[in-house]
Measured scan of single mutants.
Amino acid sequence: MDSLVVLVLCLSCLLLLSLWRQSSGRGKLPPGPTPLPVIGNILQIGIKDISKSLTNLSKVYGPVFTLYFGLKPIVVLHGYEAVKEALIDLGEEFSGRGIFPLAERANRGFGIVFSNGKKWKEIRRFSLMTLRNFGMGKRSIEDRVQEEARCLVEELRKTKASPCDPTFILGCAPCNVICSIIFHKRFDYKDQQFLNLMEKLNENIKILSSPWIQICNNFSPIIDYFPGTHNKLLKNVAFMKSYILEKVKEHQESMDMNNPQDFIDCFLMKMEKEKHNQPSEFTIESLENTAVDLFGAGTETTSTTLRYALLLLLKHPEVTAKVQEEIERVIGRNRSPCMQDRSHMPYTDAVVHEVQRYIDLLPTSLPHAVTCDIKFRNYLIPKGTTILISLTSVLHDNKEFPNPEMFDPHHFLDEGGNFKKSKYFMPFSAGKRICVGEALAGMELFLFLTSILQNFNLKSLVDPKNLDTTPVVNGFASVPPFYQLCFIPV
């Protein structure tokens, strides 16, 4: 009986604490739906499609509103004006990374994606500088992407125009580009180590996009005490870190300090320079996690976009025909596509942009946080508050993009057929937390897609009208449904 009384008292205290925290903070924060004790607004949000729920709530509470995930307040920004004001106009104040408990377990605050403060700034600055020195957006990395595009075309030829699921092959190409940047090595598509790495990356994007992960991140005790797919994700990350550590040891034994070959060499050189400046942010643990982040951000996002792009091109054969006509006119058949071609191919450029806009790969991006107490639109948001960005509300804005739910390359073309930029184009987020590999991803999408369409016609196994382009999961990332196609050599 005594234990029951204690339990009831504990629960009562928890409920009172929950109510007090919510009521004391709500006077400062933007308005929002009334949260339930302990669980907050979790029942009012469709976990399978958070973005749709945010759109519905914005119609009631406006472009800036507050939700509670458990006891934790989260300020939501919906629509271009609110997102721009926060991420661009007040970029420094909104540059923090929001709480992501599962990532905390995986990387302990290291790396480039989930770190904060001085650690994040130094690692991000170093990573950007190193990638630029190796030619991100310049010639040397373009050579690597072109080489991988040629290998991709050869792998597709091996399908002999038979029906195939493109998931694996389209994942190999961007993964190999990242391998060449980090390890100075590309792998054969049949290499077992490479296959294991690909498998872990593919599993992780599916797990991260599941409703279960949303629950884990908002009720963090689940991570330590409950079984579930989150444990598989943590094991996959541990596998990748151990693999990278092996490569780091190989580099330490063979590195030429006067001739760095890749990202690992550059990081080890930085560690050597910083060894007298303790404590340094440049450690082996930081290198492991930064490399894992580059793999995660640079492989599955690009391969998922490529997979979605081919599905949309199957669905819209008239678009595919126009792209192939432009390829034939500008590039021809006797040389590989290059980035200089893009400025002469406005329709193809528009298609690449429209694919990214339409699929809305990361509907709410990753959570941000404010780095200080900030007054925002007459609300006071306390330091450390998590900020949720609705990228969907920007990419699918119906004023900027008429009929935003329709796939239409003319969203990025003017009346004369010239490519038209849009400030609403934010597939990689915006501001200080914009994806480090934005330029690389854009290069890969253009070169891989043009190389495929230069060499193959795409054949659907069903009537294009019957192809479903609805994402199968739409949590962290929008993942396309399973499909097969035939690559018919031109």
Rank of each mutant, 00 (worst) to 15 (best):
N474R: 14
R357K: 00
A321L: 11
L90I: 04
R342F: 04
N378I: 01
I327W: 01
T66E: 00
K185R: 09
G298I: 11
Y189P: 06
F425Y: 08
P166F: 01
C179Q: 04
Q278E: 14
S53E: 14
A350V: 00
K206Q: 13
F126W: 13
G137H: 15
V83R: 02
L67N: 00
L366S: 05
Q252P: 04
E328H: 12
K138P: 12
A149R: 01
D349E: 12
Q252V: 10
S254A: 13
I222K: 04
A106Y: 11
M136A: 14
L11N: 03
L391F: 06
S24A: 07
T283W: 04
V248L: 12
D143W: 04
E281C: 10
H396G: 08
Q214D: 05
P404D: 04
V6H: 05
Q484W: 04
R307L: 04
F65A: 01
E415C: 15
L208A: 11
C10N: 02
K247N: 07
N378C: 02
L391T: 09
L467G: 01
R377M: 06
N289S: 11
V462D: 10
K185V: 04
E246M: 09
P227F: 10
H276R: 12
L413R: 01
M339W: 12
P63A: 06
D414E: 07
S162I: 07
N378Y: 03
G117V: 05
S24G: 03
G137I: 11
S254R: 11
L362S: 04
L449P: 00
G40W: 00
N176V: 00
L9N: 00
R139G: 09
V490I: 09
R26K: 15
E438K: 05
I434T: 12
R144D: 06
K138I: 08
R335T: 05
L156C: 04
T301R: 13
T301N: 11
T66P: 01
K185P: 01
G332I: 02
F412K: 00
F487V: 02
S3M: 12
I99T: 14
K421M: 12
E148L: 00
D349S: 11
D360R: 09
R125G: 12
D463L: 09
I434P: 02
T159N: 05
K138S: 11
F187S: 05
L312H: 04
N277L: 14
L361E: 09
V479R: 15
K206W: 10
F456P: 01
Q146L: 09
V145P: 00
P464G: 06
P402L: 08
L156G: 00
D373R: 03
N474G: 14
E438H: 06
P33S: 00
F295D: 00
P73T: 06
L234N: 10
G98P: 14
V177A: 03
K249L: 11
I42W: 11
E122H: 12
N116P: 04
F110E: 10
F187E: 02
I389R: 01
R21S: 10
T386A: 08
I181T: 05
P63H: 11
L19E: 01
D341V: 03
K383V: 05
Q193L: 09
E155D: 04
R342Q: 07
S210Y: 02
E274K: 10
E400R: 02
R150Q: 11
D373Y: 01
K423F: 13
Q261A: 13
Y424G: 06
E328C: 14
V370H: 04
G70L: 04
D165M: 00
N236M: 02
E155S: 07
D188Y: 08
K84E: 09
A161C: 14
G171K: 12
G228D: 02
H344V: 07
L413E: 00
K399W: 10
I488T: 15
K375Q: 14
H251E: 02
M426Y: 07
N218W: 09
R26N: 09
K459V: 06
Q22W: 14
P480R: 03
V330C: 09
N455Y: 04
V83Y: 07
F401M: 05
L36M: 10
S162N: 11
G442D: 15
T167P: 01
N107A: 08
I50R: 09
N196T: 13
I123M: 15
A350M: 02
F65R: 00
D341S: 01
L453P: 00
P166S: 03
Y308L: 02
C338A: 07
G32L: 00
L313A: 04
M406G: 10
M198G: 03
P30Y: 01
S280A: 10
L43Q: 08
L197Y: 05
V5Q: 04
S286P: 02
D143E: 11
T159A: 05
Y61R: 01
E328D: 12
L361M: 14
V64A: 08
E285T: 11
H410C: 15
K241C: 04
T159P: 01
E92W: 09
A149E: 00
N107V: 05
F65E: 01
N334G: 11
L208G: 07
Y483H: 02
D360P: 12
E92P: 07
V64G: 01
R377G: 07
I331V: 15
L90S: 09
E354M: 01
S220R: 12
S422Y: 05
Q356F: 09
